[in-house]
Design a protein around this nucleic acid. Structure first.
Lengths: 342, 342
DNA sequence: AGACGTAGCACGGTCATTGAC
DNA sequence: TGTCAATGACCGTGCTACGTC
């Protein structure tokens, strides 16, 4: 900075005023300073600034994986909105979700230059780690049921599942099968719970759910099982990728979609409209989730105090495409299917 | 720090010694200090540290979008490897790839607390922005042909495309059609060039390529066109998502895969093994790309000087699944197809 | 001599104060 | 009165140099 001041023939004071947009600098002087900055390739040292102001203008994001569409789209939205507010995003990946690694991430986070943290993970792994969270760092959690302790933003998983099941029951299906995500996922749990309670509320039988791991591979495996299940005419799959695998399994086993079996997914990934059968699915608004996370975090930073615990639910929307149709007559279903088995 | 010192009954000197792992501290004292740190939730101020050391232990990543599988997987690998080396990742998203926005990203980057930058984008937009890159910040570029000016890491796009075309020609296909990505993408350009030159080297006719935008939607549109193309028995699609759309278009038009038409994709996204026809595709090792980026960046930081310009190519691998097969006899192709048109 | 305290400086920028033109 | 120079305190940490027991 002293160099810039010397080159511009002013004091370092004036350089500081210029770089912070202070008003009481005459335009001619300002231009001179700016020219000197450009010439010397000067950039204000953000560490010094942060040290002075006590803020880093950075938000940390802790997550397990960017591999899922949901996470990467949420992170993108967070990064975009944070950037618009002058905040940068620091990613802290936790590759294997063990207690130790999560603790490590928080410890590292504690040493990092962040003003707040957005956590995208299952909250039960967060529990034990909580104590090590440095005070004064604000937290917003995504994909969690910890609304009683944290500020939580999430998709309204339950309502999405409810819409899916209602849609299928409304088409005349006796009941709805379910392929869930992994048991460790709260999103998966909430979708499964809502599926179950909606069926129970309608007085329908509740079939044993199948468990997948979000991957197309696991959806394919589930599909092979369900194709042999008598009376299965409707399936609610907990995400679109598993639905892709399931569609293929049903196709291989000669089960026509949607004529014999209706399928509903979850997420609305861009590809789902181009699955072999365009998929009826529950749309998640990841961008909105990201936006609200940033908004909540910034509110806390600006007000200087933690937000009230509570859950902010982003609505979902059922997109009806071609993978769902009126239920076939019961007798026909079982009779028609049997001969088709290898 | 003074608080910790007071609580532990030592001087701030000793606290500093403990937190930096200095040797001449007796274990008993060290434990006392550590206990005080835990009790007070003390974390060393990284701004002050950065100010002292002149390093931030942070790498910036500039990118357009996390939406594509490739980008998000590369970023994840970067974040993981950087974390293993004690570096954090700061994301700088550029939502709309205009010259202005890229310039803005670099300006912001200049003010950010980063020691180096990894740029994931088409390099021609980088050209004009280059001048504003602050000196002393090291750069590694992904997905670019700027190996003459920058340190570049990239998938060996050309070899991947060559493998795909050779595979199809080896199956007896007269020639290979191509659905490319957007013209603005260098990855797309290189795949298309290699496709063309491989055909030319083999003395085969080069059909007019179709242009998509990486989306399944655009692949579907291209598929509808190609289904009407006489003599089209083999298609090399520039990514898997477009291949998904293309498969559906071909299916709708009654073109059997792989019996009538063979299809090869690019990327090997996890879903591609569960497409309606399991896709033969060129596997990209995104994790390795990310790893090498971090390695290159850290080498520069540690040696304190920019790397020699040059391109580091990560090999690809052709995965043969079920979407490719021996070419049908020429006469049969055209004859068999015609009646199937609506 | 080993373990630890005290003091002072440096890192780079911001801001308040004082005073000059 | 407005614009700017000069000076020094300050942010939190790390390190050197010395001192003490």
């Amino acid at each position: 900075m002293a160099d810039v001041a010397k080159l511009a023939g002013v004091s370092s004071q004036t350089v500081s005023r210029v770089s912070n947009g202070h008003e009481s600098v005459i335009p001619a002087t300002r231009d001179q300073v700016l020219a000197a900055m450009r010439q010397l390739g000067y950039r204000p040292n953000s560490a010094a600034r942060a040290l002075r102001y006590g803020r880093f203008n950075t938000i940390g994001v802790i997550l397990f994986s960017l591999a899922s569409t949901g996470n990467s789209r949420t992170v993108e939205a967070i990064a975009t909105h944070a950037a618009a507010e002058g905040y940068a995003i620091t990613l802290i990946p936790v590759d294997v979700p063990t207690q130790d690694n999560v603790l490590g991430a928080f410890t590292r986070m504690g040493e990092l230059a962040v003003d707040a943290v957005i956590v995208i993970m299952e909250i039960h792994l967060l529990d034990a780690a909580t104590v090590t969270l440095p005070p004064g760092v604000y937290v917003v959690v995504v994909d969690s049921d910890a609304g009683d302790r944290y500020s939580v933003v999430d998709t309204d998983q339950a309502d999405g599942a409810r819409q899916a099941v209602h849609h299928l029951l409304g088409l005349g299906h006796e009941t709805v099968w379910h392929v869930s995500g992994p048991e460790t996922s709260f999103a998966s749990q909430r979708r499964a719970q809502a599926w179950r309670s909606t069926l129970e509320a309608a007085g329908r039988p509740v079939p044993e759910p199948l468990t997948g791991d979000w991957s197309a591979r696991s959806g394919y495996a589930a599909g092979l099982s369900l194709a042999d299940e008598p009376g299965c005419t409707a399936v609610f799959v907990a995400n679109d990728q598993m639905a892709l695998g399931l569609l293929r399994a049903f196709h291989e086993r000669g089960r026509a979609i949607p004529d014999e079996v209706s399928v509903v997914g979850f997420d609305d990934i861009p590809d789902s409209a181009y699955f072999p059968t365009p998929l009826t699915t529950v749309r998640q608004d990841f961008a909105e989730v990201g936006r609200r996370c940033v908004q909540r975090v910034l509110t806390q930073i600006r007000e200087g105090q933690a937000a009230q615990p509570g859950t902010d639910l982003v609505p979902t929307q059922l997109l009806i495409r071609d993978s769902t149709a009126t239920a076939p007559p019961v007798a026909e279903t079982i009779a028609a299917r049997k001969p088709k088995r290898r």
